[in-house]
Structure formats: C-alpha cells, structure tokens
C-alpha cells in the first residue's frame, strides 16, 4: 500500500507539472514574447517560444528523474534486507 502511495504521488507530481508546463508553454510564453518581439517580428517570437519550451521540457524531465531516483534510493537504503541471488 505504501509503495503504491509513494509512486502515485510521483504520478500526481508528473501530471500536475505537465499540465502547468503546457499552460506556460502555450498560453503564457506567446503572450510574454509577443510583447518583447513586437518590433522584431513573429519568426523571432516562435524561435523564443520553442527555445523556452525546450528548456521547460528539460527542466521538467530532470525534476521528474531526480524526484523518482531520490525516492528509490531512500526506500532502498531504508529497507536493507539480506536477499541472496539465486
């Protein structure tokens, strides 16, 4: 039960941050960049949005990996039980 709860919390974290990232990428970024790039044109706006979206994606994946791996290491070191190989 505790195993499922821990992994469920990771799934919830990934889901919420995925939706938040999508909102930032598709709603907030074009609005912000359009204000900055009024003079420089739409192409630059698209490049900036794509670049920032990539950075957000990488940060999101790194956060996800760190959270999952730290959770795993903590559980593994806490539950040391002799388990011989067969």
């Amino acid at each position: 039960m505790r195993t499922t709860i821990g992994l469920t919390l990771i799934i919830l974290f990934v889901w919420i941050t995925m939706l938040a990232s999508l909102v930032v990428i598709f709603a907030a970024l074009p609005f912000l960049t359009s204000m900055l790039t009024e003079e420089l044109g739409r192409l630059l706006e698209q490049v900036i949005v794509a670049g920032l979206a990539t950075i957000i994606g990488i940060v999101w994946l790194t956060m996800w990996r760190e959270l999952a791996f730290r959770y795993f290491s903590r559980i593994l070191t806490r539950n040391v039980e002799p388990s011989p190989d067969t």
Partner: peptide
C-alpha cells in the same frame, strides 16, 4: 542493490520489500 542495474518501475515497487 547493484548500483549499475537499471531503475525500472518493478525495481521501484520492490525497493520496499
């Protein structure tokens, strides 16, 4: 417990017991 083994969903499930 081999640190070089891949971390998979099943290994995470089994980490507790």
């Amino acid at each position: 417990r081999d640190p070089s083994a891949p971390i998979t969903l099943s290994r995470m499930i089994l980490a507790r017991s």
